[in-house]
Amino acid sequence: MMDTNIVSTMTNKTILSYNGPFYIELISVFGTNIRNFNDAYSNARKKLFKIFIELSQNVSNYSENFHMVNNVQRIGVGELSLKEFDNAYSFTTKNQVKKTDAEILTERCELVNASDQMKLRELKREQRLNSPGEKFGARIGLIQAVMLSKNKLEFKVDKINEDFSYFSLTVKIDKF
């Protein structure tokens, strides 16, 4: 089941909302739309595009609610919402996680939020060098989002049951 809504009007200030599987083809189309929907705030939109791709791919790779494609490829299911305000864009993702992973993610977000830009750069270098690579990637998506936006992560954990929670993450990208 998919629910897509691409709107560029300023009346409700919602630029994009989506609920469904995060296929790379969709992420790419949405990303291109975000980059090109107007000519204003080009620097902010460049940052927004990078953060959009990174956080969307986190949902695609790690959501505990997922679709299997051809019995081999796992595509995460979740939600995203992109809103425009007078001075900023706000991008939110929400997906299902294991309760234990929600605790790890919360700790990571708290660590990132407690770090200044210099510390974040150190953390980024350290994590990327020490990541085992391959399917684990670089493990620096959250750090990168804060380094680019220069704003703290807003995150929320909502319990679904004893085993799973919803993890919501919002990043604000200033226009100026």
């Binding site: 990078k50 791709i53 791919q57 990327r128 690579g133 990637g137 670089a138």
Partner: peptide, 13 residues
């Protein structure tokens, strides 16, 4: 012109 963080790990390799 853009590479995601997973790609940065491969470029670093």
């Amino acid at each position: 012109i853009y590479l995601n963080t997973s790609s940065t790990k491969c470029v670093l390799d």
